[in-house]
């Protein structure tokens, strides 16, 4: 029996990056119609949880173990939203020796510190908090609990 396409392809176009599901309801002739057809909505997609500003959103992958103190483990994917201004306790991405690193921003009184929670990297006091140079603010951390997956460059890609 032929089915009806209830949601047009066009109206789903904005969900292009996520799961595209067609809402197929059984044809009328072959029995009782589903009582849910009037209430169908677009299925949640993973992108609904991640970004509000795709224009300013970039992604990065954590390597090494130096960020574990601030909750970031090797192979975690960081969602970085450059439209956000850092506030207390944010994790920020900044450039460091030609590459990138992440730090936690902590405000104590009028002073701002960059914290790694790592004995090898003591907290750094920010000299001029109004002009702290930030590459972006980490808005989400994607963890894969099964992650031993290697990317195409192997476990640790050479830092350019």
């Amino acid at each position: 029996m032929e089915s009806h396409l209830l949601v047009s392809k066009e109206s789903l176009a904005e969900y292009k990056d996520s799961e595209i599901s067609y809402f197929i309801a059984p044809g009328i002739a072959c029995g009782f119609p589903s009582p849910a057809t009037d209430s169908l909505e677009v299925r949640l997609s993973i992108t609904d949880f991640f970004t509000s500003n795709p224009t300013a959103t970039f992604f990065g992958r954590a390597i090494g173990s130096s960020l574990e103190g601030i909750g970031i483990f090797e192979n975690d994917v960081l969602v970085i939203d450059r439209s956000l201004r850092p506030v207390n306790n944010d994790i920020i991405v900044m450039t460091y020796e030609g590459g990138f690193t992440a730090k936690k921003v902590v405000k104590e009184g009028n002073e701002v510190f960059l914290i790694s929670e790592n004995p090898e990297y003591p907290p750094v006091k920010v000299a001029d908090p109004d002009n702290l140079i930030v590459w972006g603010v980490v808005s989400k951390i994607i963890k894969d609990p099964r992650s031993v997956v290697k990317n195409r460059y192997g476990h640790i890609r050479k830092v350019i």
Binding site: G60, G64, I72, G99, V159
Partner: peptide
């Protein structure tokens, strides 16, 4: 790399 269009090419953060 294709830093913004390929998920294997995103920036690395240490």
């Amino acid at each position: 790399l294709h830093f913004t269009t390929d998920k294997d090419d995103i920036i690395l953060i240490q």
